[in-house]
Design a protein around this nucleic acid. Structure first.
Length: 807
RNA sequence: GCCGGAGUGGCGAAAUUGGCAAACGCGUGUGACUCAAAAUCACAUGGGAUUUAUCCCUUGUGGGUUCAAGUCCCACCUCCGGCACCA
């Protein structure tokens, strides 16, 4: 008989890839009366370097899940597409003059070839490509809708700017003070930019996290990023002026201990009151110095610096005591109110600052349990108030309520909520992106391009460099720039910035439901059928950016009535990375395993099986070239097992029992993303089968069915050999179910412990009673040697498992 | 500093959620087949002691709860990821 090796050599796997394509096995059908299941990968950026086996882990997971669901008779939507706008192709274009469109086209075709060669069952009719006009038309449409809803605005701000990519970056795209994409140190620039009001959805985004089935870690990261805190805003009058300075604090209970305050260098009060500040020269010098630095540089100054505003004092509204005012660069203008109250006794930072400037430390909170670290260190915890007038004796918690109420009555305070999350800066001064569909008219201001005129097409260019002024290259195309106002028909100019590519990827999962629709983002019926996504799989690195933006856009579209769900991805699974030699696989490290070469040497079935077997899917694991051989040997063994098949053979009870156990475990493990143990269970069962002289067709068939989501080619080959069926194994609807009755064993190994240590094991009938077990245990030789009846204190009996004799 | 996650053989890892620690696979060793090698098959493989059909120890460290702890509790150490002048 032909062996597995010659099956591979004779293009056995390719035969089935062709067959599935020809028979449209993996095309999405929506047959009536079947459940719909939408399983989605995060769509990739088609890079020039192609895919490596690390990328394929996530894709293999979704494909296994998709195939299993298909075999269970569901309608499955399992699409793939391309996040095709963005900097790499554009930078490459600047270097080489090759149009990004061509670079991307080539990369896509390469990716497609690679993905297809691994046997993934995507329905390519559903493909979406974010740089195509029929796609970005809807990106622009969303922008216009958001604009109409008041969720888009343009404003001048100091923004993060990457000098190498020559574009601004969203806060989320600055990682470790560096550009997320190219690693260049980010600088700050004051520029007019488009923003999406994601902050309006801060609370919704936070609340939505409670209901979705996502890794705890990802939810926590989003929660931290949103950074909600509840506190109070307190107004401090400035003595002998009409001005007040507001501060935000979460610890209003420490207010009696506040004897100085600090404002940000950008705080407007400074300019307003400069005539009253007696040391203005010194203050101004400090401000200038601070403003020369970026936020990032300021953060680098670890010591808290500041200069007192001499001649000015504020009044603490709770006790009318004078409060010194400082300007300090560690106070941020864009968080809270741009001013803080300082309580040296109960904030370590304030404590250190007060030492430097000889400010007294007033203790107002006494710890309830521990000893106060004062005067060596501040006490930052909660406790009972002292030195706090009428509020003394209250706990921190009570005091916060009462003091806020007190100040509110006086008109000096209120409770507020603050978020760390900022609005999403989406304009980019680059070519290769979705044009922002806005027109600036001298008379009407910014006017959105009407829906009927969408898409605003990206003009063909051959010069991709931003202008010397740092504008988008589109600014150089007068045909594009000069237009008429959609409102008044007068002369107008187009916006030349393009959108952050994260806008493109914030909604693509919607489009798969109806990717060829020219009139709507997607047909309502189709949306209802498929969305939200049943399972979303991708890397943890998208925990904040992509996943937060996608949730935001979904919520906004929901509130405008276009979607009837609030969360796009009720279930998220994040696969771990694949390392090699202890490092992330990457071309620059030179440690990538190329899937093409791998498939050629071992076959795609082995490759997929190993991806699933190498370790827990959610955990990062090390790729081992040697570990692969185990999977290959296993498939060879599976191949050889067919020699043992005998039509009508009656398998032993043990084999039947093991089969049902395997069905149960494999089905459950795939549902739980424990693919590694699912494969182990199959290996185990194959070992059992190898030990049989003969096996029935049915047992082998079930085994093959369970294996085929992981290793589809050998699955289809064996299935066809067995049945002579015309239908593909994936469309035969034959996923087996286990029979719980047949899993139960009659004879079990029963453990006998003495004081919790295993001393003997005996074979007993299942369901043995406690008394019977005790009797058997005590009659064991090994136990007799160690235990005298009269010394027995207690007997613990765990049915069908063990008996523990305590002496 | 804060918030997560992890720590089990030579290696990747299992452990039905408190009940035989090391399933499955890799590697290694011995044997069978072979002129030989590869492949395959069989057996062994956490550490230590030994009178070798016997005993002791072992899940990062130290303590605790329990008849019983890799699993629960407390403290600590190490590694990885995220956030970080956020008031």
């Amino acid at each position: 008989m032909e062996d597995y090796n010659s099956f591979l050599e004779n293009n056995g796997e390719q035969k089935w890839l062709d067959f599935w394509q020809k028979e449209k096995v993996f095309q999405t059908k929506d047959e009536k009366g079947k459940d719909n299941y939408y399983v989605l990968d995060m769509f990739p950026y088609p890079s020039g370097s192609g895919l490596h086996v690390g990328h394929l882990k996530g894709y293999t997971i979704t494909d296994v899940v998709a195939k299993k669901n298909l075999m269970q008779g569901k309608n499955v939507l399992h699409p793939m597409g391309w996040d095709a706008f963005g900097l790499p192709a554009e930078n490459y274009a600047i270097k080489t003059g090759i149009h990004p469109k061509d670079t991307i086209k080539k990369a896509i075709s390469n990716f497609k070839k690679q993905l297809s060669s691994v046997g993934y069952g995507y329905d390519w009719r559903k493909e979406v490509t974010s740089c195509e006009p029929d796609y970005y038309k809807w990106t622009q449409w969303i922008f216009v809708k958001l604009f109409e809803k008041g969720l888009v605005y343009k404003k001048k701000e100091r923004v993060n700017f990457c000098p190498s990519c020559k574009t601004v970056l969203a806060n989320e795209q600055v990682v470790d003070k560096k550009c997320e994409r190219c690693g260049t140190e980010v600088i700050e620039k004051e520029l007019e930019q488009w923003f999406l009001k994601i902050t309006e959805y801060a609370d919704d985004l936070l609340k939505g996290l409670e209901k979705i089935d996502w890794p705890e870690k990802v939810k926590k990261m989003q929660k931290n990023w949103i950074g909600k805190s509840k506190g109070s805003e307190i107004d401090f009058d400035v003595q002998d002026t009409n001005e007040t300075i507001s501060v935000y604090t979460t610890r209003i209970d420490t207010l009696f201990g506040c004897n100085y305050m600090v404002v940000a260098p950008e705080h407007p009060i400074l300019e307003k009151l400069k005539s009253k500040i007696t040391n203005w020269e010194e203050v101004q010098k400090y401000i200038n110095q601070a403003q020369k630095q970026t936020k990032i540089e300021r953060k680098a100054n670890k010591g808290k610096t500041g200069v007192q505003l001499k001649g000015l004092k504020a009044i603490n509204p709770i006790n009318s005591q004078p409060v010194l005012i400082f300007v300090g660069d560690y106070v941020l203008m864009d968080y809270g109110t741009g001013g803080i109250m300082a309580v040296p006794a109960h904030d370590q930072r304030d404590f250190e600052f007060s030492k430097k400037h000889n400010i007294p430390v007033i203790e107002v909170i006494q710890p309830e349990k521990e000893e106060s670290p004062l005067p060596e260190k501040s006490y930052e915890g909660e406790g009972v108030l002292i030195n706090s007038g009428q509020f003394s004796g209250l706990t921190s918690k009570e005091a916060r309520k009462k003091m806020t109420r007190f100040l509110k009555k006086k008109g000096k305070g209120k409770s507020t909520t603050n978020y760390k999350m900022r609005d999403w800066l989406i304009s980019r001064q680059r070519y290769w992106g979705t044009p922002i569909p806005m027109v600036k008219c001298v008379k009407c201001g910014f006017v959105p391009v009407p829906e009927k005129d969408l898409p605003v097409k990206l003009p063909e260019l051959d010069d991709f460099k931003p202008t010397s002024k740092g504008e988008s290259p589109l600014a150089k195309v007068s045909d594009f720039v000069n237009t008429t106002c959609p409102k008044c028909g007068g002369k107008a100019k187009r916006e030349t910035d393009t959108m952050d590519t994260f806008v493109d990827s914030a909604w693509y999962y919607i489009r798969y439901a109806d990717n060829n629709n020219e009139d709507e983002i997607a047909n309502k019926e189709k949306l209802k059928k498929w969305l939200p996504v049943d399972l979303y799989v991708g890397g943890e690195e998208h925990s904040i950016l992509h996943l937060l933006y996608a949730r935001f856009i979904t919520k906004a579209l929901h509130d405008m009535g276009y979607l009837d769900f609030k969360e796009p991805f009720p279930k998220l699974f994040c696969q771990g990375m694949v390392y090699r030699d202890g490092e992330i696989m990457s071309k620059s490290r030179g440690n990538v395993v190329n899937p093409d070469a791998f498939v050629k040497e071992y076959g795609l079935d082995t490759m997929r099986l190993y991806e699933m077997f190498m370790g827990p899917a959610k955990q990062s694991t090390e790729w081992s070239d040697k570990g692969v051989t185990g999977c290959r040997r296993f498939l060879e063994k599976v191949w050889r097992l067919q020699e043992k098949i005998k039509e009508g053979y009656k398998d032993s009870d043990m084999v039947i029992r093991e089969m049902h156990k395997t069905i149960k475990k494999v089905t459950r493990d795939i549902n739980d993303f424990q693919f590694n143990t699912a494969v182990a269970a199959l290996m185990d069962f194959s070992n059992t089968l190898s030990n049989q002289d003969q096996i029935s067709k049915q047992v082998y068939k079930n085994f093959i069915i369970l294996l085929s989501p992981m290793s589809p080619c050998i699955g289809e080959e064996m299935y066809q050999r067995l049945g002579g069926e015309k239908k593909s194994i994936f469309r035969a609807n034959k996923w087996p179910e286990h029979d719980p009755k047949l899993i139960k064993e009659d004879d079990i190994t029963f453990i006998i412990q003495i004081n919790g240590k295993v001393r003997d094991q005996i074979k007993v009938k299942a369901g043995i009673s406690k008394d019977k077990a005790r009797e058997k245990a005590l009659s064991s030789k090994k136990i007799k040697k160690r235990v005298k009846e009269e010394n027995i204190k207690k007997i613990i009996f765990v049915p069908d498992k063990l008996i523990n004799i305590v002496v």
